[in-house]
């Protein structure tokens, strides 16, 4: 039995005269990994940014569980448990690893902070070693781990990841995807945006294909992996 946790309906977003999203609809089921694949500039990041309220849609509705969140400010959306790991990681380079993690917990400040820190260290032992280091001095892979660890500090009830594999060496990409699957198995639904379509569909339950601001296809991830059109366009034939 699946149950919808996030529903996006007929979403339109424009940057000035440019229509980035032209009526996008999508649902995320509880407990699942949902992935959005598509080329550069298809509007994948814009969709996540609209859910996080970093950009305002011109039309459409975003529902999370039972509430309409379309017009909420970003910090309210974070408070509700929708945590967004943005493209390019966007860690606070001038601050220490520890301070980055504390900022991650900003919306869920509470007594179990140490417990959450330990859980993050269990997944990313490297972060514990580098706790007092300036985050800007971390390697790309470590920065991605910090970005995800920081998100976990917020006790996500829906985790949105934008291009977590970007710029990482292949063995690190595998490691990151392993971790994403592990986080999902602990019960966190995930909305994953990726250009690395193959890896994304491998771990996802359901996939959407976004092309120039429109959803052109949706199916189970397994079916998309076998779909000739998808193979042709996104999986290198």
């Amino acid at each position: 039995m699946s149950e919808t946790i996030l529903e996006v309906r007929d979403l339109h977003v424009a940057y000035g005269a440019i229509q980035a999203l032209k009526g996008v609809s999508l649902t995320v089921q509880r407990g699942e990994i949902t992935t959005i694949i598509g080329a550069n500039g298809a509007g994948k990041s814009t969709l996540l940014r609209a859910i996080s309220a970093l950009v305002r849609p011109t039309r459409g509705v975003i529902r999370y569980e039972t509430s309409d969140i379309t017009r909420l400010p970003p910090h309210r959306i974070v408070q509700m448990g929708i945590i967004h790991v943005p493209e390019g990681r966007r860690i606070f380079a001038e601050m220490s690893v520890y301070e980055n993690l504390l900022l991650g917990a900003y919306s869920q400040w509470g007594r179990d902070l140490d417990e959450r820190l330990e859980r993050v260290f269990a997944i990313f032992p490297r972060l514990k070693e580098r706790l007092n280091q300036r985050a800007g001095t971390l390697s790309g892979g470590e920065q991605q781990m910090l970005a995800i660890g920081r998100a976990l500090m917020a006790r996500p009830r829906l985790l949105m990841l934008d291009e977590p594999s970007l710029g990482l060496a292949p063995f690190l990409v595998r490691e990151i995807f392993q971790i994403i699957r592990q986080i999902n198995q602990q019960g966190v639904p995930i909305l994953l945006v990726e250009q690395n379509a193959h890896m994304a569909l491998e771990i996802a339950h359901r996939g959407y294909v976004l092309e120039t601001g429109r959803m052109v296809l949706t199916d189970t991830a397994a079916n998309l992996l076998r779909n000739p059109a998808v193979r042709e366009a996104y999986l290198g034939g």
């Binding site: 996080s52 869920q108 917020a154």
Partner: peptide
């Protein structure tokens, strides 16, 4: 440092 990233942490800027 990065007001959008801060917003994604739930900081009401």
């Amino acid at each position: 440092e990065d007001f959008q990233a801060a917003a994604l942490m739930g900081v009401p800027y």
